[in-house]
Structure formats: C-alpha cells, structure tokens
Design a binder for these strands. Structure first.
Length: 166
RNA sequence: UGGGUGGGCCGGACGGUCGCCGCCUGCGUGAGCAGGGGGAGGAAAGUCCGGGCUUCACAGGGCACGGUGAUGGGUAACACCCACCCUCGGUAACGGUGUCGGCGUCCCGGGCCGUACCGCCAACGAGCGGGACAGUGCAACAGAAAGCAUACCGCCUGUCAGGCCAGUCGGGUCCGGUAUCUGCCGGCCGAUACUACCUGACCGGUAAGGGUGAAAAGGUGCGGGGCGCAAGCCCUUAAUGUAAGAGCGCACCAGCAGCGGGGUGACCCGCUGGCUCGGCAAACCCCACCGGAAGCAAGGUCAAGUAGGGGACAAGGUUGGCCCGACCGCGAUGAUCCCCGGGUAGACCGCUUGACCUCGCAGGUAACUGCGGGGCUAGAGGAAUGACCGUCGCCCGCCACCGGCGGGUACAGAACCCGGCUUACAGGCCCAUCCACCGA
RNA sequence: GGCCCUAUCGUCUAGUGGUCUAGGACGUAGCCCUCUCAAGGCUAAAACCGGGGUUCGAAUCCCCGUAGGGUCA
C-alpha cells in the first residue's frame, strides 16, 4: 500500500515537471508567463488515506475563522482538502463553506508554501465569513503552520513514510 | 364595486472577469490544449405511501402478520386524483329573541343603530365500511339507575297492626264548678265500629319528581268556549283521560317500516303508518380487497490483498414467521452451504430515452386517455452546478419636491428513476367561485 | 443515499384510556439536629418534544412535523 501510494505521488509529480521542464520551475519566478488561477483535480485531496495522514501529522493552526492542518506531500504543489461537518449547517450552508474555501485557495495558491497538503475546517458560527476574511485567515494560518512544521521536523523527506506508518 | 374563499403558475434579469463537472469536434504518441454547447428544485427536503429496475438455485395454497375501506370512475399502482353522497364544524349575510347603551320624545309606546345569544347556515374546511341480532370488552367520578330495563326513593288507592292527639258516642249510683230541677261546662273512665292524623308492613297503580352525568327508552309547541255541585251534555274543533297527577291528543322536526318515483350506485324526494333506546371498533374481533423479501452501499466485471476456525450434507438445506407443497441436493482426501473472525475499500458498468417534455386534434363534467408532429433537458463520486464587481427590478428605514443615502432580496442543494402526500417559503401574477349593492 | 430506534422534572427512570393536581432515586433550595461539616429527618420548587384528530375524557390510541441516536458496501 505504501509503495503504491508513493508511486502514485511520484507519478503525479513527474507529469507537470516535464511541462515545466523547459522553464525554470521556481514558482516565484513566473512573471514572464501570467499566473493561472485554476483548480485542477491534482490540487485536491481525494482519498481518505490522504486526509488521515494529514490529521496524523498533528500540525495545525487556528483562529476564530478556520482550522488548518498541514502535512508534507512530496510534490511541487499545494493541495487542498475541505472538511465541513454537519455542525456547520444544512446542505446549502455546507456547500457555501466549501465553495468559499476552494475559491480562497484558488486565488492564493501561488502565495501559499508549495509541497504541502492543507486540510481546512471552518469554525461553525452564526454568520458565514466573507471571502476576504477567509483569504486573510488562510494565508496567515498556512504560513504559521508551515513555519512550525519546519521548526519541528527539518527533514521533510522521512516524514511522509513516518506519518503514513503511524 | 366591496368583502370572502379555493386553485394554478413564476420564484430575480442583464453584462464583465476568474473558476468547476460532463458531452461533441479538432490538434497531439501521451499528459493536455483550443472551440462549441449543457449544468439543481417546486419542494431536489421529510422518507409517509405506491411502482419501475436488480438480486435472492421461483414466487403456489393455508394460517399468522401488515395495510386499506361510503359510492362510481382514473391510473402501472397507490393511503393519490376527479365526480358525487352522508356526517360534523363553520364566518359574512339573513331571520328571531332579550338585556343594555345611544339617536329621538315632556314621558311612554313604536322606529333606527350598536351589542349579546339562538336558528338556518353561502362559498369553504375536516372525516369516512358494517356489527338497532356474530361474539367479547370498556364507561373513572357523580348519580336511584350506565345496560336486561326496570328495580329503588318518593307519590296515590286499598288492607292489616299499633299509637294517641283532635273529634264523636256513652256514663242519668265518678269528681269539680255553675245553676231554680231537668241541664250546661271542665276533668275522669270506657268504646273506638265511624271521621281525620301518625308510624310500620303488604298487595296494586305508578303517568308529577329524584339536585347527577359526555350520554338516562327522542325533541319543541299548543290543548278553546257554554250549561251544570258533579257525573255528563252541546258548539267549533286535531284536542282528551284518570281515584290523583300527562309520557294523553294533535302539529312539526329527527329516526324506523311499507309503498311510489329518480339515480349505474352510495343515496335522495313524496305519501302513509305507528310511537321508536343507545355510545366507543384510530378497544379485541368479524367481513371484503391487497401485499414474497431486501434494497443501486441492490447487483455484475476486473485489480490488489490477510488468517483462519467451527458446523451441516437424505431423519438434510432454501424461499426474512409456521405448516403443506415446490426447488436444490445423492460416492465426502473433492465440491456446495451456514456461522464466527480477519482483510480490501481502488477502477468500470448499472447511470440516465423515460408510465419524458411540448404543440395540435378528438373523447370525457373532471381526473385522465387516444392519435399525429416536434424535441433530448445535469450525471458527480472527499462529491461539479461557483466567487467577485457593475446596472436595473422589488421591499424596508431616513432625509423627504424630483430624487438621494443605507440595508435586505425567501425556503432551500440532485446521488438509480418515476407517480403522489406532507412540511418550509420574501414577493409577484393569473384564473375560478360565493355573498351584498348598483346598472343594463 | 437506504433502513431503523428513541423522546416524561436539571439527570436517570416508573406510569394496563379514568381518584394524574404524573410517582421514585440522585441533585437544588429552605428549616431542624450538631460547636462546625458530613450523615439523618421534614418541607418546597421542578417535567409528559410540538401541532392536529378519535373519545365524555389522551402521557397512553392514530396522523404529521421537530430534535437526537444507531446501522448498512
């Protein structure tokens, strides 16, 4: 299982590397080609095991708007997973939360630290926060959590099998 | 025109930027890119019913269990829909009664208005089988009595027994008073057959009444006049009777039976008769009809992968409960089935052409059906259908002359698909129907 | 998504349609006892998830909704 998981991740990482291969692949050095704010499927967490690994890494940051769990994913991209429980409301309200979270991630994907999985949980409140508030909170919490992750375990390479095995 | 009720439909529009999920076309070995076109609802919800579909080595019968229930239709089928019948509720309007208040009057009556109650109750809403003889059961408290209908209290007539009060009679030798003697009055004694009263018992009649209660063998109204002491008689009448007192007599209404008529039917209408007893089956149950079960996480194919153990196999196993029947199954170091435990939760199919939508014609009061033309209208899978901005529409508040400013714009998100029901909903549009008034 | 279950004082629970004004335990409040606390005794407050219907009468019977919970590859 672990071997298949790693193969899948490496394969996914290989494919955009060829497209970005002719260009220098640093995300910060892309001003000559305009940044694209898309949200393709390889930027999403899609399996229960990926969510479990990110929770098992036990590195999070929170304020009164969001809770953000982070974990290294071994690729070159940030990835998003939304967890919106039934305490947040009924179906219309939960869809609203998820769409706002995805929109915030889509617009901030070039400003967030890459190679990280982000599992974002909204705090259930009486009012749904605006898109700007979610963007501010997501950016601040993501940078804080990734900094704590780097302070805690410096080598990011052995951590995914360690987290996956635990 | 005013008021009320019911039903149907829509449920923001346009533009720009950046995104997401399918489909088609083109390029490309591939990843992908470009273009075109599509992308939540009337309730998608609750999961309360009914089906299609899939599976269960077949699905037949009986019992059990569950559901439904006026009548006639519609439908694939319904607990749904349409039409109609019955019962109950019911506001406006109408009619009646009564208290109070007002207008008005010198005062009263009459009149008008308001208000309260009652009756009939427009549209409208709700609910439906039968058990006045198929059986069982329940009705607390109160009440004489709650189901067999009379017993009980009370009342009346009569008889018997007792009582002593009143009354009556007797005492000429009982007593006192009065008086000219007879006599009169009071007491006393006796009788009580007779009158009346009280108490108790019994036979009979019971037709006033019995405060209760949700409900007590139906409800309301009326019962004239004259003569006579009375019985009784006479007149008009539908109107008397008993020892006494109306449940008696008649009329109307409700109910029942018979006859006639209308309707496919539930049922309704008219006439006549006689005087008439229940309530609850959303208590058990009886009658008729219907129902095999599980549910797309059903089910099928492929890939990856751990760890087995126990039991059954003709006196057997399976069809979710039981029996019959049916089917499976007859050489066991093999194969099949069941139970416990462990593992995987990845890909594809099912997956959207269907009791589909729309238009026209025809049938039908309607629900709906038939025929013909046209159309394709979301298919996700940690789960798309979005975010932001601008203008306009609608609502609210403020300034308030045009207008300006600020805020809000509902209920709610497909998960195999349909037909219903129920529930939630800012606002808007349309149609139908009833009543009152006015006009033609 | 499908299929089920439950709802009674603050909590856990009883309650065959009728003396229900709903009982019990723990907890809460007050008083008594004690030098004080605990324990004990007495007293009080405190609920039928909501709305309709059947019935003379509903916590109970029927229907609809609400809120929790469970289970299925």
């Amino acid at each position: 299982m672990d071997a298949g998981e790693v193969d899948n991740l490496i394969g996914k990482g290989d494919r955009p590397e060829r497209r970005d291969g002719p260009e220098p692949s640093e995300l910060r050095r892309l001003p000559q080609e305009p940044r694209r704010y898309t949200f393709p499927p390889h930027l999403r967490l899609k399996r229960a095991a990926e969510f479990e690994r990110c929770f098992a890494r036990r590195q999070s940051a929170a304020d009164n708007v969001l809770i953000v769990y982070v974990c290294e994913n071994g690729s070159r991209y940030p990835r998003l997973g939304c967890v919106v429980s039934r305490k947040c409301g009924r179906a219309v309200r939960r869809n609203r939360y998820k769409r706002l979270l995805r929109e915030a991630f889509r617009l901030l994907q070039h400003d967030l630290p890459a190679g990280i999985d982000y599992v974002v949980l909204p705090r259930p409140g009486s009012m749904i926060p605006s898109l700007a508030a979610i963007q501010r909170s997501l950016l601040r919490l993501a940078r804080r959590a990734v900094r704590q992750l780097q302070d805690k375990g410096w080598p990011p390479q052995p951590s995914p099998p360690q987290a996956a095995s635990s």
